[in-house]
Simulated scan of single mutants.
Amino acid sequence: MGMIDLNSDLGESFGAWTLGDDAAMLDLVTSANVAGGFHAGDPATLLRTCRDATERDVRIGAQVGYRDLAGFGRRFIDVAAADLTADVIYQVGALDALARTAGSGVTYVKPHGALYNAIVHHRDQARAVVDAVRAVNPSLPVLGLPGSVFLEEAEKAGLRVVTEAFADRAYTPEGTLVPRTEPGAVVHDPDVVAQRVLQLVTTGTIEAIDGTTIVVPAETICVHGDTPAAVAMAAAIRKMLDAEKIHVKPFV
Rank of each mutant, 00 (worst) to 15 (best):
A35N: 08
V192W: 03
A97N: 06
R67E: 14
T49R: 08
E207V: 14
A243P: 03
F14Y: 15
E219K: 12
P179K: 05
P111K: 08
C222V: 02
A24Y: 13
P250Q: 13
P250F: 05
C222M: 05
I246S: 10
R134M: 08
A157R: 07
D226G: 10
R196V: 00
G65I: 11
A157N: 09
H122S: 03
G36V: 02
I214R: 05
R160Q: 12
L151F: 01
T213E: 14
H121W: 00
A126Y: 07
A208K: 05
T30R: 04
A132V: 01
T203D: 15
R123N: 04
I246W: 06
R196T: 00
A132G: 10
H121Y: 02
S104P: 01
V133H: 06
V248G: 06
V142E: 13
A232Y: 02
I4D: 09
L241M: 07
T18A: 11
A165W: 11
A82K: 04
G105M: 00
W17E: 07
E219N: 13
A53E: 12
G144W: 03
H247W: 03
N117A: 07
V193L: 07
G211S: 09
A208L: 04
A32G: 11
V223D: 12
N137K: 00
G65M: 09
D83K: 06
P217I: 01
R134T: 13
G147N: 05
V34Y: 09
P183S: 07
C50V: 04
G225K: 00
A194L: 07
I209G: 02
R123M: 04
G113L: 02
T202Q: 15
I214L: 10
V248E: 05
T163R: 15
R75I: 02
N7Y: 04
A114V: 00
